[in-house]
């Protein structure tokens, strides 16, 4: 009696085992297809970055050599030094950090509060306010940039600030021997033109951020907050101690978007500042500067691409750092659900 062969036959014909084997093959096919799919589309996405790197490293001699496609024969870093000089890179980088990144962080905080109010509390004008949130998301800043320029140029709150200056701040300044003391009414060229809207939750793309937060807060289970209410914590304490720790993913998402969109903002920076421009403005003007430095036409290709890379490099770095946090915060999500 060949016990083994019978066993094997039965094993092979067992529907469960057959299903298992089939699903194993299926999962291999699926995995191979997944990698193929991700790589092929990824190629389209990474192509501009790779060609930017290639063109930024290529020396001018190699640019005319048709045998060179991706890897130059003569590497050169001179494009980067030229780009750093043309953009005033380090100064512009500092301007970007203290104007744009700081505003972005203010916005991350202020929008979360508004969204929490809209998502968790029922009051009469809730729906109307949500409509206004969507309106701020729909209307692009270009539409109202000129009226808001005038608004910042003469930031008087309908005469309130001049009144305070004349009757309160001025006399106080007078006592201390400085009668010129006043609250500034011209916010053009001041980082306040970025900080104030961000602080009040109406900065760049704030409508969208409020909407993102709101949708995520709606999905949070209410039980933890109710427990915290019963324990006697107020709404703000509940928000700080319960809601923020359990919504790490959305806070990180909004932080990443806010920093990137402030970093990429060109339109408002060029309107509201006359000097100390952030990186986006200096990158936008790089062609003109390069021409002035004698790098016209095809000579400007290398430095321009180097400039683009220098512009996106800090954002990539930030994403790489926050990505790790992202993965760490996922583990915490489980606690909530």
């Amino acid at each position: 009696m060949n016990f083994k062969s019978i066993d094997l036959k039965a094993y092979k014909n067992d529907p469960l085992q057959r299903k298992k084997a089939a699903s194993k093959v299926g999962s291999w096919i699926f995995k191979a297809f997944r990698i193929f799919f991700l790589l092929s589309v990824g190629y389209i996405i990474i192509y501009p970055l790779l060609s930017m790197i290639s063109y930024s490293l290529i020396s001018r001699v190699d640019l005319y050599d048709p045998s060179i496609v991706w890897v130059p024969k003569h590497f050169t870093a001179s494009n980067y030094t030229v780009a750093v000089e043309a953009m005033g890179y380090f100064k512009a980088l500092w301007n970007t950090v203290y104007k744009c990144v700081f505003s972005a962080l203010l916005e991350v905080a202020s929008c979360s509060l508004v969204a929490y109010g809209l998502a968790r509390f029922k009051f009469k004008e809730n729906g109307l306010l949500f409509g206004i949130v969507l309106l701020t998301a729909i209307v692009p800043v270009q539409v109202y940039i000129i009226p808001s320029y005038l608004n910042y140029r003469f930031f008087e709150l309908g005469g309130v600030i001049p009144f305070i200056n004349d009757n309160i701040v001025g006399p106080i300044g007078g006592w201390f021997g400085n009668p010129e003391l006043a609250i500034p009414t011209n916010l053009i060229n001041s980082p306040l033109a970025f900080y104030l809207p961000a602080l009040f939750g109406v900065g760049i793309r704030s409508g969208l951020f409020i909407f993102i937060y709101r949708q995520f807060f709606l999905g949070l289970p209410k039980e933890l907050e109710e427990a915290s209410w019963i324990d006697g914590a107020g709404p703000f304490k509940t928000f700080l101690r319960v809601v923020i720790p359990s919504s790490g993913v959305v806070f990180l998402t909004v932080t990443i978007f806010a920093i990137i969109w402030y970093w990429n903002d060109y339109y408002q920076s060029i309107m509201f500042f006359n000097q100390d421009f952030p990186l986006a403005v200096s990158l936008n003007g790089i062609t003109g500067v390069l021409q002035g430095m004698g790098y016209a036409y095809e000579k400007s290709l290398g430095p321009t691409m180097a400039g683009c890379l220098l512009f996106i490099a800090p954002m990539l770095l930030m994403y790489a750092i926050l990505q790790k946090q992202f993965i760490a915060s996922i583990d915490r999500v489980g606690i909530v659900g």
Partner: peptide, 13 residues
């Protein structure tokens, strides 16, 4: 409380 959360944004708007 809801109105308190939203108030700064209303001023900003």
């Amino acid at each position: 409380y809801g109105r308190m959360f939203v108030l700064p944004w209303e001023i900003g708007i």
